[in-house]
Structure formats: C-alpha cells, structure tokens
Computed example of a mutant assay.
Amino acid sequence: MGLRERNAARTRELIIDTALNLFLERGYDATKMEHIAEAAGIGTSTLYRYFPTKDLLIIDPLAFRGKLAEGLKSRPADEPLDIALGHVMIELFLVPRGDQQQIRQIQKVVNDNPAPRMRLLEEFMNERKLLEEAIADRLGRPPHDVFCVMTARLTTSLLEYIGELTFDVQDNPPEAYIRELFGSVTRQLAAEPPVFPVLTEAT
C-alpha cells in the first residue's frame, strides 16, 4: 500500500471513529454530517468525498464491497462450485475484523436506527445479487437461473449464520477455529438438508 492509500485509510478511520463517538454521544439522527466534519477537523467536501451519506458512513466497516463475487471469480475455473464457495467464505472470515468493541458499537447504532439498518440490508441484497451473477457466469447459465439464485442465497445465509456464531468468540478467530466451525455446520446441513416448501407429496 502506497503513501496515498495509507493516508486515505487513516482518514477513513478518523471519520468513522469520530462519527461513531458522536452517534453514541448525541444520537444518530441528531448528528449531522457537518458535525462529523467539524469534530474530525476536516472539510465538509472531504467528508462527502469519502462518504456521500451518513448511513453509508456507519455501515462501511460492516460492508463486503463485492468481495464474495470477486472471490468466486478468482477461484480456478475447473474447481467445483461448492469447493470454490467454501474457500471464498473461509477467506472472508480470515480478514482481520479490527476492533470488536467498535464493531459491536457500530452494529448497535445500525440496529437502533431505521435508515442505516435499511441501507445495510440493501448492501447485503446487492452483494447477494452480485454473487448470483458470478455463479451464473461461472456455470454459463442465465443470471436469474433458480439454481444460481438459491445457491447464492444459501451461501449468504450460511455466511451470516457462521458470522453470528463467531462474533462473540474473540477479535480475530484463528483459521483452525473457523475451519472447524465451518466444517461442523456444513456437515450438519449435508446430513440433514433443510426442507423446502412443496404443494403436493412426492409420488
């Protein structure tokens, strides 16, 4: 990472730290973008260049930013889809999550306020759509193919579930722990797959 990128990363960190402190102190709705810029000691135009809206600012540490789809595209073309998706998920979990105290505080602000909560849901749905498209492209199927859609949805649901299981363990769980947990959950699913709704009994 070059000097420019390091400076940009530090500025993003400063903005998020400052905004979070203000949200916790004043409340999310009462804190304006101008308040954040002033407290961070930066210009309003600089703040908007990094974060166009307040809700994008607060969800930034929680967003995937297309990493699921990008990760799948980077896997070998001849690798089975289930193996490729497994590797992508493990790699995501191994990315350092930073200060867990801060992440918990951010999650609380998001959960307690409708605007960022809806924005995070939109981001999650967009990530899922990008993964659907990446799966379809990998298999040479249409973008809205039901197999691709449901595979992407199951993958993101599994990611969310394992994320919940690891959230309170420690700041950055070791790879061995992540792999063991992932294996345990996927083995249970394979042994007793979830059922899906039908209208008539199979004959």
Rank of each mutant, 00 (worst) to 15 (best):
L20P: 04
V198G: 06
L62M: 14
T186G: 03
M33N: 02
M33P: 00
G2T: 12
A8C: 05
F147I: 00
E160W: 15
E175Q: 14
L154P: 02
P174R: 04
K73V: 05
L130Q: 11
I36F: 07
D112E: 15
L159W: 15
A152C: 00
T186Q: 11
A77P: 04
I83C: 04
P96W: 07
S74A: 15
E175D: 07
N21L: 10
P173H: 05
M125L: 14
K73S: 05
Y28I: 03
V95D: 14
S45A: 13
T203Q: 03
G66E: 06
N126C: 02
N21F: 10
T186I: 15
V185C: 05
T151Q: 00
Q101L: 13
M118H: 10
E25N: 05
M1F: 09
R128W: 02
A136T: 01
H35C: 05
F147S: 00
P80T: 01
D29N: 09
R12A: 13
I15D: 01
R4C: 03
L130V: 01
N113S: 10
P173E: 08
D60L: 02
T156R: 02
N172H: 08
R49Y: 14
C148A: 07
I90V: 15
L3R: 13
I16G: 03
K108M: 10
V198P: 03
E91V: 11
A63P: 01
D29T: 10
F196V: 06
I103C: 03
D99M: 11
Q100L: 14
V169Y: 15
A63W: 08
F93K: 11
N126K: 08
A190K: 09
G140R: 00
L47V: 08
